[in-house]
Design a protein around this nucleic acid. Sequence first.
DNA 1: CGGCTGATTGAGCTATGTCAAGGGCAGTGG
DNA 2: CCACTGCCCTTGACATAGCTCAATCAGCCG
Lengths: 229, 229
Amino acid sequence: MKLVSPKCKNCKSRDDSLFSVCQISEIEQVNSAKTANLYKKGQYIFYEYAPPIGLFCISSGAVKLSKSSSNGKEQILRIARPGDFLGYRSLISKSRYTHSAIAIEDATICLIPKADFFALIRNNNQFYDSLVQTICKEADEVETKIGDIAYKPVRGRIAEALMLLAGACNDGDYITLTREDLASFVGTVKETAIRIISELREEKIIEIDKRRIRILNPEKLLAVCHLYD
Amino acid sequence: MKLVSPKCKNCKSRDDSLFSVCQISEIEQVNSAKTANLYKKGQYIFYEYAPPIGLFCISSGAVKLSKSSSNGKEQILRIARPGDFLGYRSLISKSRYTHSAIAIEDATICLIPKADFFALIRNNNQFYDSLVQTICKEADEVETKIGDIAYKPVRGRIAEALMLLAGACNDGDYITLTREDLASFVGTVKETAIRIISELREEKIIEIDKRRIRILNPEKLLAVCHLYD
DNA sequence: CGGCTGATTGAGCTATGTCAAGGGCAGTGG
DNA sequence: CCACTGCCCTTGACATAGCTCAATCAGCCG
């Protein structure tokens, strides 16, 4: 879905992105190369196993990055937000996408063609280095997540996810993830996630309004996270 | 434990390493900067949370990279072999080690000081790019592992680990990992790992000689891997 | 007012973790 | 060379977290 292209220069998420290390001239260059698209909630930005076509940059909305195992289960690896890039790893490693990107809220996302992306990383070392740092951080986070999934009970993982999402993925104070997505994010099934959320509600650690979750008592929630360390 | 320094130029694992993209002059430079050390089985090469001191390069032996959760459990992320580097991510991201490196066989490992490592990646773009590719591949593998741990039963994960290790971590045809290490590698406990190994032995898919494991029927083992996809 | 999607709750089952006891191999010291 | 000691490995019995299946409910949209 095409959109009246907003200017990168004025993009609210620019300062939150790696473009913050770029010169104005480079931003202009990117701006004229990019195309902006609107994605409805649930729509795919790209598919696992497809060849990469460029660098995506989230201007607004939220995106889940997930792998699907062929038994039908989905594992959400990360939630991406405005200012986040998508698809750079596949570009850099010249491989296909290793996960899918799906909008979990209506989102505006720009696509910067492959060639322009490569020009950028070739010409701006600082940008490249920052991107590499981002990749390192991703690797660290995923490694931590492995330990959590292997050894922490679901209750601890849910608590941790809520803490994490409260900081990043919220509408005001509210966490708007679907129960199913929350489950996929921590590596469990919907029903189990729901039961634990209900427990936390009964313990007055969180509050539920319609489907949205709000944290009432961050200290207690943090305690739940660390109960199983 | 110091050692008579072997020459990088003659190092058997050089062609298996990222140094294969380097010029002879660069290898010479690295050679004179490095120090070689011998590590006994069980000895730490570096500790999680410690600040990085340089780039490690495995000349011989095997190393496990693992994170410990404070509940005492250990999660092995990867087994590193001759030609593999250790510690680059912490150098690049200017952070502390996010995991420990421990010899699981006696190993000869060289240490290339920080400054020389940075000189190398600054001066040789191809080397830097290859390193970044390695990091991307690591991230992909760990992401895949997350899905496995979250949704595959232990039996499938053990089968997968055996397939993987048979290719890389063997003494002849034998897999020599400790039961405990194998368990930590797939995210379970020793006893469960042992039970599943015994099952696979009874099904004549693997054979056990003393402590070592040998794969008898790779096709069947592969089938076990995919049973739960 | 249906029909749909997502949330909730209950009942039952099972894979896997925990605890406990024993057995064998390998390296060390006398 | 033998006995000792310690590290693994192995097996059993048991407990339970978390998965599956199934039924119901609550908003929401056309």
